[in-house]
Computed example of a mutant assay.
Amino acid sequence: MAELVSSNKVFGGDLRKYKFKSAALGGLSANFNLFLPSQASTTTKVPLLTYLAGLTCTEDNGAQKGGFFEAAAAKGLAILFPDTSPRGAGVPGEDDDWDFGTGAGFYLNATAPSYAPYYNMQTHVTLELPQIIEAAGLPIDFTRQSIFGHSMGGHGALTLYLASTTKQYRSASAFAPICNPMKCQWGQKAFTGYLQGGIEEAKTLYDATELIKRRNEPVNILIDYGTSDNFYKQGQLLPENFVAAAEGKNVSMRAQEGYDHSYYFISTFAPEHIHFHAKFLCD
């Protein structure tokens, strides 16, 4: 059962922080933030947009710095902000590096024996959190969901959208996503660490560039990245690989001149991403 930790008024709605014991994350305590617009009530359920944050982040980064609430309030959209990994699993080596382990769950379900009991962020985001929110009686319409994210969270948003066999999400968008993780250092490190089958196991499940190749149905995807993003320049993001694989599949890829990887970049284009999702969520 979710316990309310705090609530703050913002743009006429409420930003609420909850905590609960997560079965998907091995019984560890988990936090999430949920923005409920003023349109949400005991008689009116609102659509849900899930935001996935990047490496080293928590459930607070997007809520505090993303700049999403004014547009979401105007459109009547709720926003869910999950954490980025389990906290306190105690797996040997999980805190050795900033880009693996705590704060770096990569939105997958681990199969390597030491990580499998705890690192199940895919299940946590797609199944567990909706169940917890519904059980709490919060006014969310789970038949209308979309997903977006930043960096590692952009990878998560794209892969959870593209891999869903139930079409859980109507649209996906991303800020500076890790588009082809099999071919970058961040992804290779995550996949060889979390997955028993390593990169080969990830190929059909957790790489957006591979997933879009096999997607025959129409997609609704928007991606922004900055041309001055150091991680883009280092070859961690590889948006060109994704857009080449997605040719003719309704993907909007925008290179934003001079922008970097920060939340200054995200907050600049946040309203456009909210409006993009509103087209699919606000019937």
Rank of each mutant, 00 (worst) to 15 (best):
A2H: 02
A2V: 12
L4Q: 14
V5S: 10
G12C: 10
K21M: 13
G26H: 09
G27F: 06
A30G: 07
N33C: 10
L34D: 11
L34S: 05
Q39W: 07
S41Q: 10
S41E: 03
V46N: 08
P47Y: 13
L48A: 03
L48S: 01
Y51V: 07
Y51L: 15
Y51N: 14
A53S: 15
L55W: 07
T56A: 01
G62K: 05
A71V: 08
A72Q: 04
A73E: 13
A73T: 07
K75H: 09
G76R: 07
L77A: 05
F81C: 07
D83L: 03
T84E: 06
S85I: 11
G90Y: 06
V91K: 01
P92R: 00
D95F: 05
D95H: 11
D96F: 11
G103R: 10
F106E: 11
V125A: 06
I132R: 01
I133E: 08
A136C: 06
L138Y: 09
T143S: 15
M152V: 01
T159I: 11
Y161F: 09
T166H: 11
A172E: 11
A172W: 10
F175R: 03
I178S: 05
P181D: 00
K183E: 14
Q188H: 04
G197W: 04
G198Y: 09
T204I: 05
Y206P: 06
D207V: 03
D207Q: 05
I221R: 07
L222C: 09
I223G: 01
S228N: 15
D229E: 06
D229R: 05
F231T: 03
K233N: 11
K233Q: 15
A246M: 06
A246I: 04
Y259C: 08
Y264C: 02
H277S: 06
A278H: 02
